[in-house]
Amino acid sequence: MATASGSSLPSGCAVFITVPDAFFFPEFVFGGLVWILVASTRVFLDNPQGWVMFVSVFCFFFTTLLFLLYVSGVNQKSSAWPTLDAAYHALAAFFYLSASVALANVTVRLQNDAVNFKSYQEDIAAVVMSYVATLFYALHAVFSAIRWKSS
Rank of each mutant, 00 (worst) to 15 (best):
I17K: 13
V55D: 09
N47I: 03
I17W: 06
L66T: 03
M53F: 05
S56Y: 02
Q49W: 02
A22G: 06
F28P: 00
G50V: 04
F58G: 06
F23K: 01
F62Q: 06
F16K: 10
V43G: 10
L66G: 04
T18I: 09
V43P: 07
P26S: 02
C59M: 08
P48K: 10
W35C: 12
L37A: 03
F58S: 07
V52Q: 04
R42F: 10
V34E: 05
G31W: 02
F44S: 13
C59I: 05
G32Q: 06
T63V: 11
L66I: 08
E27M: 14
I36H: 00
P26L: 03
L65E: 03
L65H: 01
G50T: 11
V52N: 01
M53A: 14
L65Q: 05
F16P: 03
A39G: 14
C59T: 15
V57Q: 06
P26F: 04
L33H: 07
F16I: 04
V52Y: 01
A22T: 13
F28G: 00
F23R: 00
T41A: 10
S40I: 05
V55W: 02
I36Y: 07
W51K: 05
V52S: 14
G31D: 01
D21H: 15
M53H: 10
L45V: 12
C59Q: 10
G50W: 05
W51D: 11
S56V: 03
W35T: 08
V52R: 01
V15W: 02
S56F: 05
I36M: 10
F58V: 07
F23M: 06
E27A: 09
F54K: 11
L37D: 01
L69Q: 12
F44W: 08
L69G: 12
L33E: 07
D21I: 03
W35Y: 14
T18C: 06
L33N: 07
V15K: 05
A39R: 09
S56G: 08
A22D: 08
W51T: 08
A22Y: 08
P20K: 11
V34Y: 07
F62W: 09
F62G: 02
V38R: 00
I36P: 00
F54D: 12
F67D: 00
L69A: 14
F25I: 12
V29L: 15
L68S: 09
F24C: 05
V29R: 01
D46W: 08
V52M: 12
L33F: 15
L66W: 03
L33P: 02
G31K: 04
L66R: 08
V55Y: 03
Q49Y: 00
F28K: 01
T41K: 09
V15A: 09
E27N: 15
P20L: 06
T41H: 03
G31A: 09
P20E: 08
F54G: 13
G32V: 06
P20W: 05
T41I: 15
W51Q: 11
N47G: 12
P26D: 04
M53C: 08
Q49L: 11
L66E: 03
W35E: 12
V34Q: 03
V52D: 10
L69E: 13
F23G: 00
T41Y: 02
F30N: 02
L69K: 11
F24K: 04
F60L: 13
F62V: 04
V43T: 14
F30L: 13
Q49A: 11
M53D: 13
F30G: 02
A22I: 13
L69C: 12
